[in-house]
Design a protein around this nucleic acid. Structure first.
Lengths: 348, 348
DNA sequence: TCGCGTTCTTGCAACGTTGGAAGGCAGTCA
DNA sequence: TGACTGCCTTCCAACGTTGCAAGAACGCGA
């Protein structure tokens, strides 16, 4: 009994070079030459083959091509969390810039979790990407240094000093200094830092640097450093920022300014202060970092230190592209500096 | 003269099955059997090979494997923009859910641009992904319907009625109805809709549905529909929301409530009202859609219609996984309904 | 008519992997 | 000792593509 050939709605086998070649009555290689605009094909033949390509909707199979060429055009982007506006905006510009360079990003979220970051550093269990753009939070630098995976990697963020890898970094000491100097200039003297963090009893570099900048500004202004004003948070979120501010004001009702480690924390802080009946900026000034879009629209609008995300994206991809193109020199470091954007939350 | 064999710091060729096989003195296939936990390998041999795998840091080359297996485990995610909190949060959960299912997402941004969306629909010029999750904005459904690419696709959002594709959709008529009913219940009568939009003189379905819900609620309450209260915006952004609100209040100083098409617009509206010296909610109540995280922390906190992003992500990946697993039935539709979350911006 | 160069086209091999079939070996039983 | 069995290992082919080398067709001049 002949099997009834019911045409399936299911994915038929996609068209391959061979199909086009057979249809056009030429060899596979000739079709390949047409697809890749290689010479040695008569114009009329070229046209003919192109017609068949269009008719059969042939599109090269990336896998075959990449197997042959040894590269995929894929780059892994590993960052803590796409939902935070900072990383979301960074990822967004990275996707665009990568596209311009003919690369496609593939996204991994680590949640800043040590194990997940370790996996990323070790290398994905299956080799698929040509490169890695990585924004680690918890991973000890020494561990990353011993990475055996040989695909080029670019580190983004304050993390990675001494790792030997290309980096796009932020001068967060300077950033903290500028932020706190601004608050001091506005006459504030009891300035809290909200967003201290520890991983295994060590401050991640981003935290250490922002606190160092904070202390540097205080020192210059001869305002004594008060450890009680440096407030820890479990996570840099609005929620924890709000909780942290509530605790801060219970312990130290005398604070007149808050330097929040990022804008999300700052939003949480403002929210909590409002709940406590305190006015921003009259009673307490608040300043954040990242200058996320929302900072221009919050009430009050938020003073923040802006970091140029598209510049960072450009830099990261330049570093990576050079490695992919074979650059084999010593690691390179590009640094972004913050720009203070003054708004209502620190007025007066 | 012998060439000096300077060990290059450049990417050495990664370890392959062949390397491991040679090192261990067995055949390639035996190593492959060990890697894939296949039978017919003596335990001691298995251990021995595993030792060499670890020593040489062998990890299978994804391309070779996928070429053989005909699939990549990659899924393209095409959405307008990662920076918007709604899409950022959606992408974030999609990435996580996909990971659980052994899939990796590869991100494309369309900016809601017709040409970019057309490219996505047509299929990427190089075949690389097993499936597509797509949130279109501008593409006419008829055009998508004629898509020749045979990789399974799932549409996310109000878009896609009659396309014949699997969809995860939002009941935005119901959503608009609930939102406006809430405003009516609070005694508001002059309710504006901010966020009308046209593409080629046609409203995208998301807009059409929210406006229909708005009108339905008015009709039920016997409040006459006033076209002047339906306000167009070029983009659903904070900036345009603010501009739209300014224009609205100039034309119609009598409005007592704004139903914003999404939360970003709502933030812009609140910002503009504040600039005009109007109080929210006393003078004008404001309500948004999406219930982004920030809605809980803005001042005033924002009433919004929540959409369960993780439910949507689960649904989208379930639909897609089934197709990848060979499901070949008719298209399926899963619908998410909104949940009103009442906060300060519509109080009193 | 032949040889030669040019232009176009084809065949072969290889990238790294895995399924299936075939091969080798040791042990068991007659 | 030989045949058989079962286990372990190897060999072969194929996935779709492209670089290289070789082959075919053609035109032109001698």
């Amino acid at each position: 009994m002949p099997s009834s050939p019911v045409p399936s709605r299911a994915t038929p086998r996609p068209t391959t070079l061979r199909d086009v070649a057979e249809a056009a009555g030429v060899s596979i290689k000739t079709v390949s030459n047409v697809v890749n605009d290689h010479p040695h094909v008569r114009p009329e033949m070229r046209e003919k083959v192109k017609a068949f390509i269009a008719e059969l909707d042939y599109r090269p199979n990336g896998i075959g091509r990449q197997l042959r060429q040894g590269r995929t055009g894929l780059v892994a982007l590993a960052l803590p969390d796409l939902t935070s506006p900072y990383y979301g905006e960074l990822a967004s510009t990275l996707v665009d810039v990568a596209r311009e360079r003919g690369l496609t990003l593939l996204v991994e979220q680590t949640d800043g979790d040590l194990d997940r970051e370790r996996e990323v550093a070790t290398g994905f269990p299956v080799r698929l990407v040509d490169g890695l753009i990585f924004a680690p939070q918890s991973l000890p630098v020494d561990e990353f240094k011993q990475r055996r995976d040989t695909t080029p990697a670019v580190l983004v963020g304050e993390y990675g000093e001494g790792s030997g890898f290309d980096r796009v970094t932020i001068d967060s000491v300077d950033l903290g200094d500028r932020a706190v100097r601004h608050l001091l200039e506005r006459g504030r003297r009891t300035i809290a830092f909200v967003g201290d963090k520890h991983r295994d009893a060590v401050r991640p570099p981003v935290v250490a640097q922002r606190i160092e900048g904070y202390r540097r500004a205080l020192r210059r202004a001869r305002v004594p450093f008060d450890p009680e004003l440096v407030r820890p948070l479990a996570e840099w979120t609005r929620r924890d920022g709000a909780e942290g501010a509530t605790a801060l004001l219970r312990d130290r009702p005398d604070v007149d300014a808050v330097f929040a480690a990022n804008d999300l924390i700052a939003f949480g802080v403002v929210h909590a202060l409002r709940g406590l009946g305190l006015r921003v900026p009259q009673d307490v000034a608040v300043l954040g970092v990242d200058d996320v879009e929302q900072a221009q629209y919050s009430a009050p609008t938020l003073t923040s230190v802006a970091l140029d995300r598209s510049e960072m994206a450009e830099m990261a991809l330049r570093l990576l592209s050079d490695r992919l193109a074979g650059y084999d020199g010593p690691e390179r470091l590009l640094t972004v500096t913050g720009r203070l954007v003054v708004r209502e939350s620190t007025a007066g």
